[in-house]
């Protein structure tokens, strides 16, 4: 077997896989942020809290109603998406005429409420969620052991990301969406119900967060604070990629996850901050982000 920089290949591949898993979550979450930002022009600070809510909904479905992983993979994003739609209708829609920073402040407040409520009822020790039977165990690839569930997370996230990309870039609905991003007034004049589209977009964006939460539930323990650290890293990912491009958000997510994994092998102390350092470098060289449009 080969060795790289004196690092055993098992360690390297293991960390690369971990990085790819993290990258999957970065990609799905930053994709949701980018979709929401495109149409609503707000940054959804509650994204991390709704990701956590997705994991909790899956846990509740299993423990209170006996509904397993596979239905939860559909149901939990629907629940979270519905919650998002309600939040958009009752609160966010009142802020569109104001400075976009108010949207950030409002969703920050929502994040505190959601997170605080879950902490009150479930503490912060975390709840276990079983890996579904079909996906337990793993494959011995010769150079490393690949747990089935982790492979599934990577595959599922790629499918969802590409599906979203396809919907936005290649379908008629996506064309309306992109048009409304450019000029909502004009699109409205053509008879498209723009407020409905905005509502559904927010619902879809946070449903993606809920989906990521269900994917995460068996890997990380279901925990009220699971979203808060993640969302700040995802913000950095979004700054690095720029939110102008859907594919850009996806690619940046995966690549940064892998970079983080590699850093953990080469210089473990730096793994927590490497994404922020990359952000600083990108701000120096290309402030609008790797895939962003210059302003």
């Amino acid at each position: 077997m080969f060795e790289l920089l004196g690092i055993p290949p098992q360690v390297l591949m293991g960390q690369l896989l971990l990085g790819l898993i993290n990258g999957s979550f970065y990609a799905v979450l930053s994709l949701g942020l980018a979709v929401i930002f495109g149409l609503l022009n707000i940054i959804n600070f509650a994204h991390g809290a709704l990701y956590m809510a997705g994991a909790f909904v899956a846990w509740m479905l299993l423990n209170y109603l006996g509904i397993g992983y596979w239905p939860a993979l559909i149901l939990a994003p629907l629940v979270v998406g519905t919650l998002g739609v309600i939040l958009e209708r009752t609160m966010l829609s009142r802020l569109y005429h104001l400075d976009h920073l108010y949207g950030l402040l409002l969703t920050f407040g929502l994040a505190l409420i959601i997170q605080g409520l879950f902490r009150n009822y479930y503490g912060i020790s975390g709840l276990a969620y079983q890996i579904p039977d079909v996906l337990s165990g793993g494959q011995n690839l010769g150079f490393m052991f690949l747990p089935n569930y982790r492979a599934w997370v990577v595959v599922a996230s790629i499918v969802v990301c590409l599906g979203t990309w396809f919907m936005i870039e290649k379908t008629r609905l996506g064309a309306y969406l992109r048009a409304a991003t450019e000029n909502p007034t004009l699109v409205g004049a053509f008879g498209v119900n723009v407020p409905l589209m905005i509502m559904m977009t927010y619902g879809f964006g946070v449903a993606l967060a809920g989906f990521a939460g269900v994917l995460a539930a068996p890997i990380y323990s279901v925990n009220p604070i699971m979203g808060e650290q993640l969302i700040i890293v995802v913000f950095a990912v979004v700054v690095i990629g720029g939110m102008g491009s859907i594919m850009g958000a996806i690619i940046t997510g995966y690549v940064l996850g892998i970079v983080e994994g590699l850093t953990r092998v080469i210089y473990p102390e730096g793994s927590a901050v490497v994404i922020f350092v990359i952000m600083a470098i990108v701000l120096m060289i290309k402030p609008e982000g790797l895939f962003g449009r210059p302003v």
Binding site: F37, N41, I42, I43, H100, L101, L104, I232, V233, F235, A236, V238, V239, E269, A272, V273, F276, V277, M279, A280, L283, M284, P287, V295
Partner: peptide
């Protein structure tokens, strides 16, 4: 670095750098 971006990005950049300071303080 942060003043290179505006509005919402400015808020995110400052938050991300603060999180970096947090990790440094942690480690």
């Amino acid at each position: 670095l942060a003043i290179r971006r505006q509005g919402i990005y400015f808020a995110m950049v400052t938050l991300a750098f603060a999180q970096m300071v947090y990790f440094v303080a942690l480690q």
